[in-house]
Design a protein around this nucleic acid. Sequence first.
DNA 1: CTAACGATTCGCT
DNA 2: GCGAATCGTTAGT
Length: 187
Amino acid sequence: MKLTADYYQHDDVVAIARDLVGKVLCTNIAGKSCKGIITETEAYNGRTDKASHAYDGRRTKRTEVMYAAGGRSYVYLCYGIHNLFNIVTNKEGLADAVLIRGLEPLEGVAEMIQRRSPLKDERNISSGPGTLTIAMGIDREQNNLDLQGDIIWLEDHKLTYAIDQSARIGIDYAGEDAKLPWRFKKR
DNA sequence: CTAACGATTCGCT
DNA sequence: GCGAATCGTTAGT
């Protein structure tokens, strides 16, 4: 049921990003338990992809976790405001990651609404990469966690959906790589 | 030490 | 549809 290290250490980050749509993200943070079905992801390849923080082997204090063996969390601050949650994939030394961009609340929905309040439209509880971390209780304190642990982990509930594939969002600075169809979304 | 810049969201037009 | 908010990271002086 819980996804294993093998799953995350596969060498095709794009295939993993596609497969993660329909998997269930689970957190147990500050005494509160929440689960949500992943509805949208994006793949980032550390070696060939200008949109990746680890492009061309770039290795800094922030990106160091991306070089770990697949199966850890990478949480970073975006635009000085939002914590974005990624799953590190591939073998040690190969800095691939999958950004989780959307969730459908499954368990602990009341907690998620409370964390997000004031919230006008409940359909937007966890509809974007910056809001789902708030709903799930994830911030930079949860960076570099082992996803085999009991704070953040993923489960396979054997859900399958039709999936749309398209270009990634908000990475115009990546030039030609911005056109790569590495975004996957539940239809 | 300094400066530029985001893997976004929300509110207002 | 547009623009402000906001601050850690990064690279360069």
